[in-house]
Write a protein that binds this DNA or RNA. Structure first.
Length: 309
RNA sequence: GGUGACAUAGCCAAGCGGUAAGGCAACGGUCUGCAAAACCGUCAUUCCCCAGUUCAAAUCUGGGUGUCACCU
């Protein structure tokens, strides 16, 4: 039987440490599932595991593209799935360490994505929305995908445009695409372990402290190095938490102190969204930690969950 | 000690006699190619306290308390 363990949870919940320890114990290899750690040169702000943390454990899907490259879930799944197959074929355990819910689920469910669109439909739709308002796009959408037109909130411009784009690209509505893919059984059935804290405030405390540590570790130098390399500030990667705020501060929009506060705030908000995403996955066994808990306790709980299967 | 201003949710804040805007935070949720993104929902039976005027008061009057500013 395929042996896959997914370690999921909000940022700063200790996923990296647990993944490495489990890999050690279970003869596993770690596959990172994080939409920002894929970028080269973005280490401190993304809390990427250090060389010391990784040690000699095989570790994948980190540092795979440059920060100014376009990336997507589709590309992630394509690359990661090959690695999963490869690790399994060698009889080892795959430990998926995931903070990006969409990526983890897409990989596990085995979703297939159409190739990157190049037809310019999206640009045209965006222009239409800009000139005539999003209502014009909704109206258009009603013509070939009334379900989406009705379901999507008028303020959710991004998804409305995507829904229209999918139809124009493929001739099939996004609603139909979704129905088709929901019919498919999940590609893998991993053991799910969720990491969280008993009390929300303890998780938030960890986030606050970690942000300070990032600044101490040289986050600003890292950002300056990226900018010196010519990475555009508008690149998706540079819009990441912990990057865009210091950049704004460097432009004098607010103080660096304010930047740090904003990073903390936005990271706390982000952690809550991650929890919302993972909470609906009933297959997850949660480990609720408390401050100062010995790591061995967490590890043995995780091993118990992994062994139960 | 005197004079003046102000007291509205955890924070900022509108309201100026007709039955408590809005923003942030918090909490809950959505999510199928930007996801560290984008989006949605909930959140003051009550406006510092007491008394009064009025059909009706967060809004007016008197007193009290507190904060700030200036004066001595």
């Amino acid at each position: 039987m395929d042996r896959i363990i997914c370690i999921v949870g909000p940022t700063a919940s200790g996923k990296t440490t647990l993944s490495m320890a489990l890999a050690q114990k279970l003869n596993g290899e770690v596959l990172s599932c994080d939409s920002m750690q894929i970028y080269r040169g973005m280490d401190i702000g993304t809390a990427k595991p250090t060389k010391e943390e990784i040690g000699d454990i095989p570790h994948y899907m980190t540092d795979i593209v440059d920060p100014d490259e376009d990336f997507s879930v589709g590309r992630y799944v394509e690359m990661a799935d090959k690695l999963v197959q490869d690790i399994l074929s060698r009889g080892k355990t795959v430990i998926i360490e995931g903070g990006t819910g969409l990526y983890v689920d897409s990989l596990i469910l085995g979703r297939s994505f159409a190739p990157t669109p190049k037809t310019g439909h999206r640009e045209a739709l965006e222009k239409l929305a800009e000139e005539y308002g999003i209502e014009a796009v909704i109206e258009l959408l009603e013509g070939f995908d009334p379900e989406s037109a009705k379901k999507l909130h008028p303020a959710d411009k991004k998804r409305i445009i995507r829904a229209a784009e999918v139809y124009l690209e493929t001739g099939k509505s996004i609603t139909q695409h979704n129905i088709d893919s929901l019919v498919q059984p999940p590609k893998y059935s991993p053991i799910w372990i969720g990491l969280d804290y008993e009390k929300r405030e303890d998780l938030y405390d960890r986030i606050n402290r970690r942000v300070s540590m990032m600044f101490d570790a040289g986050l600003l130098d890292e950002i300056k190095a990226l900018l010196d390399r010519g990475i555009p500030e508008t690149a998706t990667s540079m819009q990441a938490l912990g990057y865009k705020e210091p950049i704004a501060a460097l432009h004098g929009e607010y103080s660096m102190d304010e930047a740090m506060h904003r990073i903390r705030q936005r990271t706390r908000n982000f952690a809550k969204r991650q929890l919302t995403w993972f909470r609906r996955n009933q297959a997850i066994s949660w480990i609720y930690q408390y401050p100062g808990q010995p790591f061995d306790e967490v590890l043995s709980q995780a091993l118990a969950i992994a062994e139960k299967d």
